[in-house]
Amino acid sequence: MLLGVSGGIAAYKSADLVRRLRDAGAEVRVVMTASALQFVGAPTFQALSGNPVRSSLWDEAAEAAMGHIELARWATRVLVAPASANTLAKLAHGRADDLLSTLCLATEAPLLLAPAMNRVMWANPATQANVATLRSRGVAILGPAAGGQACGETGEGRMLEPLELVAALADGLAPPRLAGRRLLISAGPTFEDLDPVRFVGNRSSGKMGFALAAAARAMGADVTLVAGQVALATPPGVRRIDVRRAAEMQAAVLAALPGQDAYIGAAAVADYAPAETARQKIKKKEERLALELVRTPDILAAVAAHPQRPRLVVGFAAETADLETYARGKLAAKGLDLIAANDVSRADRGFEADDNALTVFWRDGRHEIAHAPKAQVARALLSLVADRLETGR
Rank of each mutant, 00 (worst) to 15 (best):
H306W: 07
D348H: 11
A353H: 13
H306E: 03
A318W: 09
R288C: 10
L291P: 12
L291A: 12
Q308D: 14
A304Y: 10
T325R: 15
A318M: 09
A347G: 05
L300M: 13
I299S: 08
L336K: 01
G315R: 08
A305H: 10
G329A: 08
V344E: 00
A290L: 13
G315A: 08
Y326T: 04
D348I: 06
R295K: 15
A290K: 13
L312R: 10
P297V: 12
A318T: 02
R346T: 02
A304T: 07
H306P: 04
T320H: 01
A353M: 02
F316C: 11
T296K: 08
H306Y: 09
R309M: 03
G350M: 03
L331S: 07
E324Q: 12
P310W: 00
T359Q: 11
I339E: 00
F351V: 01
D348K: 11
P307V: 06
F361W: 06
A290C: 06
K334S: 10
R346I: 03
P297M: 10
V360N: 05
V294F: 05
I299G: 10
N342S: 12
V294C: 12
G315S: 11
A318E: 00
A340V: 07
L289W: 13
S345L: 05
A353I: 00
D354E: 13
A304C: 07
E292V: 14
A321H: 15
R309L: 09
A317G: 07
L291H: 09
Q308F: 03
A347F: 05
F361E: 00
E319Y: 11
G350Y: 03
A332W: 02
A302I: 01
A305L: 09
A317S: 14
V360G: 01
A301V: 04
D343Q: 05
D337G: 13
K330C: 10
T320Q: 04
L323W: 00
D322R: 14
I339Q: 02
L291Y: 14
G335S: 10
A321Q: 12
G350F: 03
T325D: 04
F351T: 00
A304S: 13
R295H: 14
R311W: 03
L358C: 04
R288M: 09
L289T: 13
D322M: 06
L293Q: 12
R346W: 01
V344M: 05
L358H: 05
L312K: 04
A340W: 12
I299L: 14
R349P: 00
E292H: 14
R311Q: 15
L293G: 08
D355S: 11
A301F: 04
L358V: 05
V313P: 02
A333Y: 02
L289S: 09
T320S: 12
P297R: 07
R309T: 08
N342Y: 05
L331M: 09
K330H: 08
G329K: 11
L312E: 11
G329D: 11
P297Q: 13
T359Y: 04
L289Q: 15
A302S: 15
D337Q: 11
D354G: 04
F361L: 03
R295A: 15
R309Y: 03
D322N: 15
L300C: 09
N342D: 11
V294D: 04
L289R: 14
